[in-house]
Nucleic acid binder design. Structure first.
Lengths: 344, 344
DNA sequence: CTGAAAGCGCTTACAG
DNA sequence: CTGAAAGCGCTTACAG
C-alpha cells in the first residue's frame, strides 16, 4: 500500500538500486537520472521505509533516553524536562530520533535497557542518573554498548571507563557554603537529596570541605537527607528548626525542595532572608518566580543534555575513542534569599 | 555478530520458522520442541531483531509523542512531564515503546511527523497540543493515521472526526469564576495563556458565562493574555494593578504563572489572600509548595496522558471504531489563596 | 553510470 | 507438528 522503492524505480524507469543510490546521493549517479528519480519520488510522495533501512544498515539512528525508575517523583523535578530539552535540541540537528524508557521500577528498567540494546532498537544510550547499586550502567559497560552518563558514576573505579557529562558538584557546593560563610553565618544546615545519588554525596563533600577550611566543626545534626521532593523540604525544616541551636542558613538540594522550605518557613513565620538565608541548586524557572526569588546555582542543565548527546554521537562514530569526561561550569545566581548575618 | 534466529535454530536442531513460532508461542508447536528452543534461546541470550520484526509485521509497537514546537517554554511547564508520565505508564503495561518528537519550530515538527508516519517509525501518535492554524492534525486526518489529541481541536468542525481526551475547560473556568463570585468578588481579573490554544479560549468562555449568569458586565480591561510563562504572570499583574479599579481577585491560566503573579504581588506589597484572591489551574506540585499554597483546579494531567494512550491503542486495534471523546473530570483544590471579599 | 543479485533477520502461507 | 520458500523494503558488493 505504501509506496516503495520499486514504485519509484518503475516510474523513473530505473532499477531499485539506482533509486537507493540517489537517496544516498551517490556521486556516481548522473545528474540527469538523479533528477528524474527525485521527480518520481516527489510525485509519489515516497519516504524510505525506516525499518527496512535500519535492518540492512544495522543502525537505527535513534538514541535511547533512560529516565530513572523513580520517574514518578523525578519527572516533577524541572531537571529532567530541561536535560531532555538539551538532548532534543542536539538530536534534532544530528537527525537522530529519541526513544524514551518507560520502566517504573529498577528491574523493569534493566529489562527494558537489555531489550533496547539487544533488539537493536537504538544506537546509543543517554543515562540520566547515577546511583548506588545501579545495574544498568554495569550492563552497558559489559556489553560495550555506546552510552554516556549525565552525572558521574557512583563507583569511582568506573570513572575511567565511562563517558560522562557532569557538573563539579563538590566545587559548587563548596563555593555555595563559602558564600554563606562569608555572609557571616556559622550555623549552616544542609538539606540534601537521596544519598544514593552521586549529586548528594558530592554536595555534602563540598559542604564539608568548606566548613573544614573555615575551621568550623561539622555537625551531624545539621545535615539531613530527603528523597521525597514533595514533602521533603518541609519535613527537613521541621527537623532543623527544632534543634536547640537552629541554623541561620540553609543549603538546599534543589530549587523545588527550596520552594517547600520557603513555604514551611513562611508557615513558621520565620522570614527569608531576614531570619534565614537559603541557597539552592539548579536555577530552574521556579527559582526566579518564587517569593522571594531564590539565590541558587545555575548548573546549565540544558548544556548537560546537549553535550551528553554530542559526546554520545562522537562515541558512536568512533567506538575506539577513549571515554570523555566533560565538566559543565556552574554559576552562582544571587537573588534574594541570602543575607549577611546580623550580629546578635 | 549478534545472535539470530538461525543460531538458535541450529542449536535447537529445528528450522528457523519453528523458532519464530515458539517466539510467537504458536499452539501448533509441541511442548517438547518449545522447551528445547527456549533453552537454546536462553543459552545464546537471544533477542529478536526489532527491525526485522517490524519490517515483516508492518508495525513497530511504538507510539510517537508530539510535543508542541514551543517546547522551549512548554517543557518548563509541569504539564508536559506529567502527561508524559501518564503516557509512559500505560505504554509500559501495553508493551509499547515511546518515540519523542524533536522539532523546534512548527515547520520542523510537521516535517518530522510526516517522516514518522510515512517511514513507519510509529504505529500511532499522541498529539499533546491543540492550537490555531496547526498543520499537524489536518495532515494526520488526511492520512487517516491513528492518533489521539490531548486537548480539543481548535476547529469545531473537526470535533466529530478526531479522538481526543480533554477536560471540560469551559466548565472548570466557569466553576472557578462562580467560586470567586460566591466569595463576594465583583472585580475579577483573568490572566490567560496564549489565545491560539484551545484551553485559553475555553477558560475565557467559562469566565464569561459565569459573569453573564451573575449579571456582571464583562470588562475587556480585566482580561489579559500572556504566552510567555516566564515573565508573563508578572507583566499581567502590572497591567491589571495599574487599572483605575484594579481587580480584587485573579483567575490565572496555570500554576506556574500563578507563581509569577504571587511574586509580583509580593513585590508590590499586596498580600494574598487578604488583599487579592488567586485561583489557578493544574494542581502541579508547585501549587502545593508555593507560599501561600495555591487554590487551584486539579485537571488530572496524569489521567489525560494515560487515557489518551489507552484510547490510541484501542483505535489502532480497531481502525473502524468511531472517534472517541473522553472528558476527564476536574476538581477544585481549596488551599490558601482565596478569601471572602471584605466589605469596604 | 547503471542493473541483477544477494542478503539484512524475521514471519507466514503452503506443503507434507 | 515441522520445514522450505517467499517476501517485507531496503543497500551494496559485483559486473559490465
Amino acid at each position: 500500500m505504501a509506496v516503495t522503492i520499486k514504485d519509484v524505480a518503475k516510474l523513473a524507469k530505473v532499477a531499485p538500486s539506482t533509486v537507493s543510490r540517489v537517496i544516498a546521493n551517490n556521486p556516481r549517479i548522473s545528474q540527469r537520472t538523479k533528477e528524474r528519480v527525485r521527480e518520481a519520488m516527489e510525485q509519489l510522495g515516497y519516504y524510505p521505509n525506516y525499518n527496512a533501512r535500519s535492518l540492512v544498515n544495522q543502525s537505527t539512528k535513534t538514541l535511547g533516553i533512560i529516565i530513572p525508575s523513580s520517574a514518578r517523583i523525578a519527572f516533577q523535578n524541572p531537571f529532567f524536562p530541561e536535560v531532555i530539552r538539551g538532548i532534543t535540541t542536539k538530536a534534532y540537528v544530528e537527525k537522530y530520533g529519541l526513544y524514551l524508557s518507560t520502566g517504573q521500577t529498577e528491574e523493569e528498567l534493566l529489562a527494558e535497557v537489555k531489550e533496547m540494546v539487544q533488539s537493536r532498537r537504538v544506537d546509543g544510550i543517554l543515562l540520566l542518573y547515577a546511583k548506588q547499586d545501579d545495574k544498568v550502567m554495569p550492563y552497558l559497560i559489559e556489553e560495550n554498548f555506546p552510552f554516556v552518563l549525565v552525572g558521574r558514576p557512583y563507583d569511582d573505579q568506573l570513572k575511567e571507563l565511562v563517558s560522562f557529562v557532569n557538573n563539579d558538584n563538590v566545587k559548587a557546593a563548596k563555593m555555595v557554603t563559602e558564600y554563606i560563610l562569608l555572609l557571616g553565618h556559622r550555623k549552616i544546615g544542609f538539606i540534601g537529596g537521596n544519598l544514593e545519588y552521586t549529586v548528594t554525596i558530592d554536595h555534602k563533600e563540598g559542604y564539608r570541605r568548606a566548613l573544614a577550611n573555615a575551621g568550623i566543626p561539622f555537625r551531624e545534626e545539621y545535615v539531613v537527607y530527603y528523597d521525597e521532593v514533595e514533602e521533603g523540604g518541609q519535613e527537613a525544616v521541621i527537623e532543623l528548626m527544632s534543634l536547640e541551636e537552629p541554623p541561620t542558613a540553609l543549603i538546599v538540594a534543589d530549587d523545588l525542595m527550596a520552594l517547600g522550605v520557603l513555604r514551611m518557613l513562611d508557615e513558621m513565620d520565620v522570614s527569608v532572608p531576614e531570619e534565614m538565608s537559603i541557597i539552592s541548586f539548579n536555577n530552574a524557572m521556579i527559582s526566579e518566580l518564587s517569593s522571594p526569588p531564590l539565590t541558587t546555582v545555575d548548573i546549565h542543565i540544558f548544556d548537560l543534555g546537549f553535550q551528553a548527546t554530542e559526546c554520545l554521537i562522537e562515541k558512536m562514530k568512533d567506538p575506539e575513542r577513549p571515554p570523555a569526561q566533560i565538566i559543565i561550569p556552574h554559576k552562582l545566581i544571587k537573588r534574594q534569599t541570602c543575607r549577611r548575618l546580623l550580629k546578635s
